[in-house]
Design a protein around this nucleic acid. Structure first.
Length: 646
RNA sequence: GCCGGAGUGGCGGAAUGGCAGACGCGCGGGACUCAAAAUCCCGUGGGGGUCACCCCUCGUGUGGGUUCAAGUCCCUCCUCCGGCACCA
């Protein structure tokens, strides 16, 4: 997406000499409305007698039959003067300039052109071609002037038809012949060059490179890369922001505040009003300043900087935040940066992320720090939606969490938000799942009750529960630390609690007296019959420690009630006992021709022949394989055994 | 049009190329209760079978391909979401 935003285009620039002498015409390339950036490369000193264009299709140069420039182009007025453009034409150019750029360049807007009357010379063909001013040409991209090739660019084609401009075919499609008079649309595909002097017969792809070089040799242009970095207005007419350290003096002009006077601090007595613009402008003590050059009374800039400015480099300042002499010390910045993990919404992917990278590279080039990139990893978190669109105050589609906190408690709400979806995914808000998290925490709490009141502190240890706990710890840490998958980490805790609760002692005394069909089966299946108080306590300690970041209040209180050392939130996360995860028996699936036909339990370290023997002995498998030839066997240790028959 | 991202049960969502649907919600059945809430137990993708146990079959937006094996890899198309868009 940034590539799109940066807008890199590879092409060539070409210089079109203007016919006649512009110096004799009205000089005035002073921008009519002040919108034109000064010093833009389209006109540099000594080049007022030519127009420079950028094109990605230099191969079509011989077909350029006219030229279009943006209304804001610095040469516009001079060209009109030279070409004796009638008043009517000049009036229409004025109108273009008055229309907002957004409206003027709207795709549906009518394409309007005005013939300036001036001409320039196509450096390839040498012929003089007309120069138009057109509303759809923008000054921010390329040079603000475009060579028009109506036969091979749809937009130019339509424009040429409208204003009756000449067409010349310079590319012929493979196996076909174009005729300019009969064309109904531009031909934009590849082909072989014609009407292109020394380049006739070349494929247009080959020609691109050759022609760029040819132009360069002749001093008429050369290969160029352009970028479409958008303007980003950093000044804001509001109080909250960094003052722009600039002073305007009537005599000396715009002057930077001397370094010794930095930083410029915001006044604390500004008066805020609903209307009336930037409050800073009304604080006279702030505005009044002495000119750094002549010392006479001058005005301080009252615009402040956009927050993007700060957020594009604050991470570097954080490495040395109390440094009073410099933004930060290089050694400290190099020790900490780049930032390991960036977390932000997708809306930052183009804007903040791009500008932060930009700033960072500038800081690198200035020698302030060494790293090339500010961030190493990116997590684009999803947004919370309601009714299909992003929750926001301005849209009014918000859910007040206070109601939910009131009803279920802050821990439940936190847990639910994390459990509902993985972080990078957008989440359509739906409260129905919150009950489930509430129930989970209530069950957890009940178990803490039980453990707290238990007198005995020893008892049996159930191996399968121990193993399950180790699996839970490993999964939890893997999910949280590696992938930010909080939802599955929480699910693992729920799963473990289910196992723990299957234990007879854990169930309520009332239920224990009842005959529940299937309960014995359940318990033996989960193997949770022999959990003793000590094991329960250990397990709870681990779970509380894991869950503490998500449900800090319950974890802290549970920790305290169990009389555990220290505090849940500062206790280090438990480490999984990896040796326990090396189970000796595993269940594997048995496939015949890719379909599961049965399961067997084997020693984890069993050799393939033994596995094969056991697998093929399964009735279902034997049935499928009987009388058929075994072509292939695949054994994925501890996972499955697959046999291919024919 | 271009650039991103996503399509899996009724829902939110799981699944290093290796038993699709973990966990939760919802729903159905049951226990407890005079009753309800809360709680607990069982079941829960579709279709089928000599439907207790069990087995077969279809199934991850569409159509193809690679593979012993595809939600996962490759190609085609469709839909939705986000961004950019007369960019020469």
């Amino acid at each position: 997406m940034q590539r799109n935003w940066i807008g890199r285009s590879v092409g060539a620039h070409i210089v079109f000499p203007i016919v006649g002498t512009p110096h004799q015409a009205s000089p005035a390339p002073d921008p009519p409305s002040g919108r034109v950036p000064r010093g833009f490369p389209s006109v540099t000193r000594g080049e007022e007698d030519s127009l420079k264009v950028f094109t990605t299709r230099v191969d079509t140069l011989f077909g350029a039959t006219y030229m279009v420039v943006a209304p804001e182009h610095p040469m516009t007025e001079a060209l009109c003067g030279m070409g004796r453009c009638p008043a009517e034409g000049r009036r229409r150019i004025e109108e273009m300039l008055r229309t907002s750029k957004a409206r003027r360049t709207d795709e549906t807007a009518e394409k309007i052109g005005v013939d300036t009357g001036a001409r320039c010379r196509n450096p390839a063909t040498g012929e003089a071609i007309p120069i138009f001013v057109a509303n759809y040409v923008v000054m921010d991209y390329g040079t603000g002037a475009v060579m028009a090739v109506p036969t091979h660019d749809q937009r130019d084609f339509e424009f040429a038809k409208k204003y009756n401009l000449p067409l010349r075919v310079v590319i012929q499609p493979p196996g076909g012949t174009l005729n300019a008079e009969e064309m109904r649309t531009a031909y934009v595909e590849d082909g072989a060059l014609v009407n292109s002097g020394p380049f006739d017969g070349l494929s247009n792809r080959t020609a691109m490179e050759k022609m760029a070089g040819w132009l360069k040799d002749r001093g008429q242009g050369g290969p160029t890369v352009t970028y479409r970095l958008r303007d980003w207005g950093i000044s804001r007419q509001r109080y909250w922001g960094n003052p722009i350290p600039v002073i305007t003096c009537d005599g000396c002009g715009i002057k930077p505040v001397p370094e010794s006077d930095l930083p410029v601090r915001l006044p604390e007595d500004a008066v805020f009003a609903a209307h009336g613009g930037n409050p800073l402008a009304r604080v006279e003590s702030f505005v009044r300043a002495a000119c750094p050059d002549c010392g006479k009374p001058a005005r301080r800039e009252t615009d402040t900087m956009d927050t993007f400015v700060d957020s594009s480099w604050y991470f570097a300042r954080y490495t040395d935040a109390s440094n009073g002499r410099a933004p930060f010390d290089r050694s400290k910045a190099d020790a900490w940066l780049p930032v390991d993990q960036y977390i932000g919404g997708i809306e930052h992917a183009c804007l903040h992320l791009l500008y932060a990278r930009f700033f960072h590279k500038v800081m690198r080039d200035l020698g302030l720090l060494s790293s090339d990139e500010p961030f190493t990893r990116l997590l684009t978190q999803g947004m919370v939606l309601l009714g299909g669109s992003k929750m926001s105050k301005s849209k009014g589609n918000i859910v007040d969490q206070d109601d939910m906190v009131e009803k279920y408690g802050a821990d439940t709400v936190r847990l639910f938000i994390l459990f509902a979806a993985p972080p990078e995914k957008d989440l359509e808000w739906n409260e129905s799942g919150v009950q489930g998290c509430f129930r989970f925490l209530k069950r957890l709490w009940r178990l803490i009750d039980l453990i707290e009141t238990e007198k005995r502190r020893n008892g049996e240890t159930e191996r399968s529960v121990y193993v399950k706990l180790q699996q839970t710890i490993r999964k939890f840490r893997g999910d949280v630390e590696g992938r930010f998958q909080f939802n599955t980490a929480i699910a693992a805790c729920m799963e473990f609690l289910n196992v723990l609760e299957a234990d007879r002692d854990v169930q309520s005394p009332k239920l224990q007296t009842q005959e529940i069909p299937g309960r014995d089966f359940l318990q033996s299946a989960k193997g949770a019959g022999g959990v003793g108080p000590a094991q329960r306590r250990e397990a709870m300690k681990a779970i509380l420690s894991l869950l503490s970041p998500f449900v800090p209040h319950i974890a802290a209180e549970g920790w305290r009630r169990l009389g555990l050392e220290g505090e849940a939130e500062t206790a280090s996360l438990p480490e999984a006992d990896l040796s326990a995860l090396d189970v000796d028996r595993v269940q594997i699936a048995v496939q015949v021709n890719g379909k599961v036909r049965g399961r067997i339990e084997i020693d984890a370290g069993a050799a393939e022949p033994d596995v094969a023997r056991a697998a093929l002995a399964l009735p279902n498998v034997a049935q499928e394989t009987s009388g058929r030839k075994i072509e292939k066997q695949i054994y994925v240790p501890r996972r499955l055994f697959s046999v291919v028959v024919r």
